[in-house]
């Protein structure tokens, strides 16, 4: 089994598309779907999760070094990609954990099939439209300055700050690819699929919504409205965290996930 530090180069091919995937830890299986800011900011959370779970953490197509198959342009496409991945690895009774964009992907997987899933964790999830047509549920991150973005998405904006002059080339390129891939999948309709809301009733496995208390890109009211549509879903707040609670509070995030998944 690969350790996180060594497994950065780990990759697999799913239906002809090569993606990076970290595989680490031991225990019940857990699929971690990263947020729009990529896999690197999730490193600490993955390490914490791996203390009590067998973690599979792929880099989404179009992000990092993962290939983007021709014609893939929606979260719906991504969800079928991951259904193929689950089949290929023959994973069963898996806990699927997604943050933001990753949670949207997780929801799109779950409404199609939960046959291989035991539990679902949705952290600061996007993916549905809650307010009326003139209300912006989700801040327009592409209309924000870098500083405004950090202030809306982090409890402590310095956590999100990256010094691109000092980072390795591969990580700078990954940041550029993450921005482009996010736009590819979430530009229009903006960070949601208008049809998803009416399909959420199909998620009939235990579901936990985790919510960073200081997310100003998405409101807690949005998260609670989302949670209310998924049958039986629970809602928990993570303090001193913004839109990326796995990044700002990796230990607390992992503890909540592992407790819910029954790994501890």
């Amino acid at each position: 089994m690969l350790q996180p530090a060594q497994s950065a180069a780990g990759s697999l091919v799913v239906e002809g598309t090569r993606i990076d995937m970290i595989e680490c830890g031991a225990g019940r299986p857990l699929l971690f779907l990263h947020a729009e800011n990529g896999i690197e900011p999730a490193a600490a959370a993955i390490e914490e999760l791996a203390k009590a779970a067998h973690v599979f953490a792929p880099t989404h197509p179009g992000f990092g070094r993962s290939e983007l198959p021709a014609g893939m342009r929606s979260v719906d496409d991504l969800s079928y990609f991951y259904l193929d991945l689950l089949d290929q690895l023959d994973l069963r009774d898996i806990t699927v954990v997604g943050v933001s964009l990753g949670a949207w992907i997780a929801a799109e997987i779950a409404v199609k099939s939960t046959a291989r899933m035991a539990r679902l964790v949705m952290a600061n999830a996007v993916g549905i439209k809650v307010g009326d047509r003139e209300s912006r549920d989700i801040a327009d991150i592409f209309a924000l300055t870098d500083q405004e973005y950090l202030e809306l998405t982090y409890c402590d904006p310095s956590v999100g700050q990256r010094d691109y002059k000092a980072l390795p080339d591969a990580e700078v390129l990954a940041a550029a690819r993450a921005r482009e891939a996010t736009a590819r999948f979430a530009w229009n309709p903006y960070f949601h699929d208008p049809r998803l809301k009416s399909r959420l009733h199909r998620i009939r496995i235990p579901t936990l919504f985790l919510w960073g208390s200081h997310d100003r890109m998405l409101s807690e009211a949005y998260g609670r409205a989302y949670c209310a549509i998924v049958p039986g879903a629970r809602f928990e707040v993570i303090d001193r965290a913004g839109h990326f609670p796995h990044q700002e509070q990796p230990k607390v995030f992992a503890e909540r996930v592992l407790a819910f998944a029954g790994n501890k």
């Binding site: 592409f142 924000l144 691109y164 002059k165 700078v172 390129l173 550029a176 921005r179 996010t182």
Partner: peptide, 21 residues
Amino acid sequence: VPFRNPPGYVSPEDNARMLRG
């Protein structure tokens, strides 16, 4: 500023160079 370089308008390689200044 945020409207000057929408995602995907130039290649990731060019954007990486811009991130580096």
